[in-house]
Nucleic acid binder design. Structure first.
Lengths: 153, 153
DNA sequence: TCAAAATTGATATACTATATCTTTTGATCG
DNA sequence: CGATCAAAAGATATAGTATATCAATTTTGA
């Protein structure tokens, strides 16, 4: 099953491969993010970690762990929302370059997509035209997901 | 002179046309933003308003005024930076649809550009493909401006 | 002028994030 | 095994961004 929404063997393996310890705290944070169906704030995450009468998770620890998980590309930070999501390719073997996110203005659901190279290229080209380079390929686009669009008869 | 960096007759006219009062407080905030050469936080703006021994500008007022100026498209909020910039088309007669911003990771300078319809279309198409609609056309892209790029010989 | 609406003032508080120092845990090596 | 050193987590304080709410003032218009 590749869509079990918690830390899997393949994720554990990535930690091991990179010499990063998958501690209890880190596993808690990653499990919460992977089983969430929405982007979560750091404080949301802390709360959810503490929900099951587990030991107290300080938000400071959450932030520290989020930093690490982000560096290692297990999760993404949504900069327009100040929230965090697990990477939709967390269990994949391959690397993926940039990420684009669609954020629903209705229900706040987040969809991670990969734009076509042409679309990304068009943005890069416009940036180059005014002298910008080394563009980070993370884009966050807001709209309405299929469930939140006004019904069309 | 169309590039004087304070509230001009044409801006005043826009307020009048829309029946919005250009009060002293609103003018202060807009002047600060228009004469700034960088994006400013709400607290930056309050400080700058108070710099010239002018009367005390509460940050609450700044936020209220920013909301109004944003609704009226005189300014934009950079969601990835929690900062505000005046619209580069503030003195133009025509409307402009969406805005895209290039934000320099080095010096934090902000450039407002307009992507080609093709580029915007490519993003929209990718969104539609996964069921998203009514995409807001504001994009914020990070990179390095021409002054902050490592020198190339 | 007077009443209603719009604007501003003042204060409290929520939310997001970082700094810093201490304690605990885990790995390594003799 | 136990000493030692580094990594991780705990604890606390504080900075930075934003909203809620109610009171006072100003503006508008009947």
């Amino acid at each position: 099953m590749s869509d079990v929404k918690t830390v899997t063997k393949s994720v554990e393996q990535k930690f091991a491969d990179r010499g990063i310890r998958l501690t209890r705290r880190r596993r808690q944070v990653l499990d919460v993010l992977m089983s969430a169906d929405a982007a979560l704030s750091a404080y949301d995450i802390a709360e959810l970690c503490n929900a099951g009468s587990e030991s107290h998770m300080p938000t400071m620890s959450v932030y520290r762990i989020l930093d690490l998980l982000q560096e290692e590309q297990f999760i993404h930070r949504l900069e327009t929302a100040n929230k965090y999501v697990s990477c939709s390719h967390i269990a994949c073997a391959h690397e993926h370059s940039g990420s684009q996110f669609l954020i629903c203005d209705g229900c706040r659901r987040v969809e991670e997509i990969q734009l076509s190279p042409e679309a990304v290229g068009a943005v890069e080209m416009a940036a180059n035209a005014v002298g910008f380079a080394s563009i980070s390929p993370q884009l966050e686009v807001k709209g309405l997901c299929v469930d939140c669009q006004p019904e069309r008869i």
